[in-house]
Amino acid sequence: MAKKRLGTAEELNLVPIMNLVTILIPFLLMAAQFISLAVIDSTLPAIGPPQPPSEQEDDDPPLSLSVMITDEGFTVKGSGIDEIVGASEDEGEEAGPTIPCTVQGCPTPDTYNVAELTRMLTEIKDLPGNEDEENVILVPESRVPYEVLVLTMDSARNDPSQKVDGKSRILFPFVVIAGGA
């Protein structure tokens, strides 16, 4: 008996396993996800009666940071940040964007200078009294593509160049989108 076993090398019958695997592969291919999704939270601006002014308002007005997105670039507004954004005397559209696009007229989403926006928002966050500020209001123009909106939200959320505990530094993660013009 032992002699016979040594003489003939028996091969394992892999055919049933093969059948099983062949059935499993199409099933798994269907359920496979090759891209991973994420979500960005946002809320509508609160609509309601104006809040009664707080006692502190005169001394320390809230930042109320807003970023307008136009077809010329970003315009950053807020209280107490005039030095950083270099606000000019002109009001409204006359003033031009705070951060113009790299190409006149912003033909593609890449031309929006998001790196400069992140740098400016980091500077604003560094101002004394703004450490706890987390809100930013986005005011995009009607024709601004959705992709630019996402890019702006990304650059306002965190600063990848500064690391805190191995993660990017959080700037203004709570985005409110206001209906622009």
Binding site: S36, A38, V39, S42, S142
Partner: peptide, 30 residues
């Protein structure tokens, strides 16, 4: 869609807001 102009998104968001949906979660690719 990433190429949609903001006015379409604004109208959709406004409508959703009126229909009791106030917390938006924009789906993006990581």
């Amino acid at each position: 869609d990433r190429r949609l102009p903001f006015n379409v998104i604004r109208e959709v968001m406004y409508t959703a807001g009126q229909a009791k949906f106030g917390e938006f979660k924009f789906v993006v690719i990581q």
